[in-house]
């Protein structure tokens, strides 16, 4: 079962990388680019599990290692 975990800095946590990319986009003429945020996507394959189990396992993984909940939020996708 393929699982995708997206980790983003929490709203309100300063994201200097996102800011820098936003500036660069403006320089390139994409003046309407707003609120640029940078995160991570972690994809993995959970062998032999149902979609529901995979979601639960990924949740555990995110809480324990993939995301630092002090500064980051995570989202889990189990593509059909």
């Amino acid at each position: 079962m393929k699982v995708r975990v997206t980790v983003m800095l929490k709203d309100g946590v300063l994201d200097p990388q996102g800011k820098a990319i936003g500036h660069a986009l403006h320089t390139l003429g994409f003046g309407n680019a707003q609120d640029v945020r940078v995160g991570k996507v972690i994809e993995l394959d959970l062998q032999g599990s149902t979609a529901e189990d995979a979601r639960k396992t990924a949740e555990d993984m995110a809480k324990n290692l993939l995301a630092n909940l002090v500064i980051e939020d995570y989202a889990i996708e189990v593509p059909a």
């Binding site: 800095l9 300063l14 200097p16 820098a20 002090v70 500064i71």
Partner: peptide
Amino acid sequence: LTESGLLPGALLRNANL
């Protein structure tokens, strides 16, 4: 120490990158 929860808070990328 912050990642293991022994101290509170977290360390982000330096503000000037």
